[in-house]
Nucleic acid binder design. Structure first.
Length: 583
RNA sequence: GUGCCCGUAGUUCAGCGGAUAGAACGCCAGAUUGCGGAUCUGGAAGUCGCAGGUUCGAGUCCUGCCGGGCACACCA
């Protein structure tokens, strides 16, 4: 990518100067390189002279001039000019030819444009979504689901090997509560488990969700009864197997609908029920070494490490979430020996993860440094924390329905048949929701105001889809003969401000994709896609493409349109959003 | 109390130790015989929570406060 070429050039120049003793003696670390917001400062700018001047106690502008002189000795033709600017910046401008060639490269490489090897061969397990069975999918889960998928795609695009894992809590008190509560609701409605089976997936999931809330609210009053149920579930009591398997299946089918809707598939599903016994066993084996007894329970004393104590086996003898995790890690590692296991989970769990990561590496030191918690900010609803325990829930399917309703009037019914209309609405809905979730940095809390964040104007998924469809519409209208861009040797011409602005963004895609992977920051892709869509629309509104003044200009503008479309498509794909040719 | 995260325009958010802190929404004023107006142009709107410190240079790094969120024993 162009950024690498620039960096290499600077590095060579600096090493040469060092050899000649012109800049004194210094260690060359990373070279700061940025795209100045003010385009008068060039396409790339480096503050390396300022940094070195500080180190060497020399005049920064003089050093910048030395660097520029050195660069100018053998300046490649892809650079238009290099300047030293006060207080000591080295500003570089790319040649027009290079910018146009990069557009052609986009047209040739298409979906592969921007692929890089920054994480070449690295193995990441991305553990995300992990909804608990017997509960409903809420907005918090949706955030980790959408972010986990986008992150997986971003990492793969930078050469990583990714294993998508979903770890679901299908055993434990929440299951007991849900079954207990649902049983009560069924009794009131004079229904049996068999008759409930007749309902559709959504209805069954909602019934269980209501049952969970019911069981949770009644817990204090019926503690003994529900605890006994929980213990029987852990023991896989025969009389409960039918209802347990049945309700578990309801949940999994319901979640599967979302995975399909959100275009995510997992390499493997892990369940708490399959690691519970093993976890308990490992903890007991390490009793006295890593874990200790306390008040009838088995705990890990994190306070020795500046953390806090956590219970791994309850005094009833049940393994907690903590113990299960200790068995999960080796199981996952056996399936996919990872360099890093990224747990995409809400930041309220960060204290918990610190403790279990420490306990885990004490049990088996090969996990040291291989477990990472990508802490997601909470999703809030008008100041309230959304909690499935208290029943303050926005279900994801409810949210999607509402978004779809808002979008409906915008789809042009004249142009499409019924099936197409439904497809367009569905894609736009998922795009709107995914984009609004992804455009914020992962660790920030996100406010979810049903009306506002689903707004379809401006910085939104539908805006990107619209821009893409607009590009494709123009390209369709261009005659095939007009459009042999890849081979054609485009003439240099005076480019308009809007064209130059678009070109200045286009070549940045590969470096944005790489940065998003290195920083685990899919939101960088959102910013890029939005900027390029904006730049294209500004260009589009001001200049004619198909009726351009000259043939060369038309060719160029079609190339620009094609490149914009491709970059939008590539960006959307990384975000897990489908692009529509027409809408 | 201890630890982690967050305080940037009315609101939602970007912002890599660098140059005049940027978008979007909302508000005000405009653009359509046009290739998709779900678009575009312009304007008003900021003590970057406060105070120190490091630095040639701090929204960005450090310290201390203030405000908000979360976690801290048998839930997941």
């Amino acid at each position: 990518m162009i950024r690498d070429r620039i960096e290499k050039l600077l590095r060579e120049a600096l090493n040469q100067l060092k050899k000649e003793g012109k800049l004194g003696d210094f260690e060359l670390g990373t070279i700061a390189l940025e795209h100045p917001e003010n385009k008068d400062y060039g396409d790339y700018s480096s503050s390396i002279a300022l940094a070195l001047a500080k180190q060497q106690k020399k005049n920064p502008l003089a050093m910048a001039k030395e660097i520029v002189d050195e660069l100018n000795k053998s300046k490649p033709d892809w650079l238009a000019d290099v300047k030293a600017v006060a207080p000591g910046f080295v500003n570089m401008r790319l040649s027009q030819k290079t910018l146009v060639e990069e557009l052609q490269k986009i047209s040739i490489e298409q979906s592969a444009y921007g692929k890089n090897a920054a994480l070449g061969g690295k193995r990441f397990m991305i553990e995300f979504a992990h909804p608990n069975t017997h509960k409903e999918m809420h907005i918090g889960h949706m955030r980790t689901l959408v972010t986990g998928e986008a992150l997986s795609r971003v990492l793969e695009f930078s050469g990583a090997k990714v294993f998508r894992a979903n770890y679901q809590g299908d055993i434990g008190p929440h299951v007991a509560k849900a079954i207990w509560g649902t049983q009560k609701i069924l009794e009131e409605r004079a229904m049996s488990w068999e008759s409930a089976e007749e309902m559709n997936s959504m209805e069954k999931a909602h019934l269980l969700g209501q049952g969970y809330v019911r069981g949770n609210q009644a817990y204090e009053e019926h503690k003994e009864e529900i605890d006994a149920l929980n213990k029987k579930l852990y023991a896989r009591a025969q009389e409960l197997q039918d209802v347990y398997e049945r309700t578990r299946k309801w949940s999994l089918e319901y979640y599967d609908l979302f995975y399909r809707r959100f275009d995510t598939s997992f390499d493997k599903f892990y369940f708490e029920s399959e690691v519970a016994e093993k976890g308990k066993q490992i903890v007991q084996e390490n009793l006295g070494k890593v874990f200790e007894r306390s008040e009838g329970a088995v705990i890990f004393d994190g306070e020795k490490y500046g953390l806090h104590k956590r219970v791994f086996i309850t005094k009833d003898g049940n393994p907690t979430y903590e113990a299960k995790e200790i068995a999960l890690a080796p199981l996952q590692y056996a399936d996919f020996p990872f360099d890093l296991n990224v747990h995409v989970v809400a930041n309220e769990q960060s204290g918990y993860f610190q403790v279990i990561f420490r306990a885990l590496e004490l049990v088996d030191e090969k996990f040291k440094g291989k477990e990472y918690h990508l802490a997601m900010g909470m999703v809030n609803l008008v100041g309230k924390k959304i909690s499935s325990r208290t029943g303050v829930v926005i279900t994801v399917d409810g949210l999607l329905d509402e978004v779809k309703e808002l979008l409906s009037p915008l789809v042009d019914n004249q142009k499409h048949n019924e099936k197409e209309i439904e497809h367009i609405k569905e894609v736009c809905t998922v795009a709107a929701v995914k984009y609004s979730v992804l455009h914020t940095d992962t660790k920030s809390n996100a406010m979810f105001d049903m009306q506002k964040s689903v707004s379809l104007d401006g910085d939104s998924g539908p805006y990107l889809l619209y821009t893409y469809a607009r590009c494709k519409s123009v390209l369709r209208k261009a005659e095939e003969a007009d459009f042999n861009l890849k081979q054609r040797d485009l003439k240099e011409m005076p480019y308009t401000e809007e064209e130059r602005a678009l070109m200045r963004l286009a070549y940045q895609f590969p470096e944005v994709a790489r940065a998003a992977a290195e920083k685990f920051a899919p939101h960088l892709i959102c910013s890029f896609a939005f900027e390029i869509a904006q730049a294209y629309n500004a260009f589009y509104n001001k200049h004619k493409i198909l009726q351009a003044e000259t043939e060369d200009q038309k060719q160029f503008r079609l190339l620009l349109t094609g490149a914009t479309a491709q970059l939008l498509k590539n960006s959307l794909r990384l975000l897990g959003i489908q692009a529509l040719e027409k809408m």
